[in-house]
Amino acid sequence: MIKRCATSFAISAICGLMANMLIEIIVRTVTGIDNFNPIPPEYMGMFASERIAVEVHILLYGVIGAAFAGMTFIYEYHEIGFFLQNLIYLCLTGAVWIPILTLLWQLQRYPYALAGTLLGYAVSYLIISVIEYHTTKRDIAEINVILAENNSR
């Protein structure tokens, strides 16, 4: 499992990096802004040069991608149920992306935006979990009918 986690972590980090670079190229091409820079000046001010700031920015997006992929190991533990799996996944990934995006987007300067993002993220997971629960419950009821028929033969 560790090997699989590490592999998906590495692949996702590279994918995250490449996706971010690709988006920047597309934006530059579409907008025609050669010196397009997706980072706020407050963040850039933390670094000695713009180039380092952008490189760290791209690297951190890679880390977010890797975290989202690497933390899926939690879905291997079936006995804890998918409500708890989703909650743990939400917390583990949040522990990575929240500080990174706060740094990159300087979200601490916009507390309402930060609160809205967190709330939206948590509510989305809750809604997905409830839908999953009802769908699975219905599927299990259908499966049990077939199993009961097979067992009565």
Partner: peptide, 16 residues
Amino acid sequence: NLRKVRSLDINMTGTI
């Protein structure tokens, strides 16, 4: 072995 399964069940935490 599917011929040896009695039933499936899901609880409130989503454990199947």
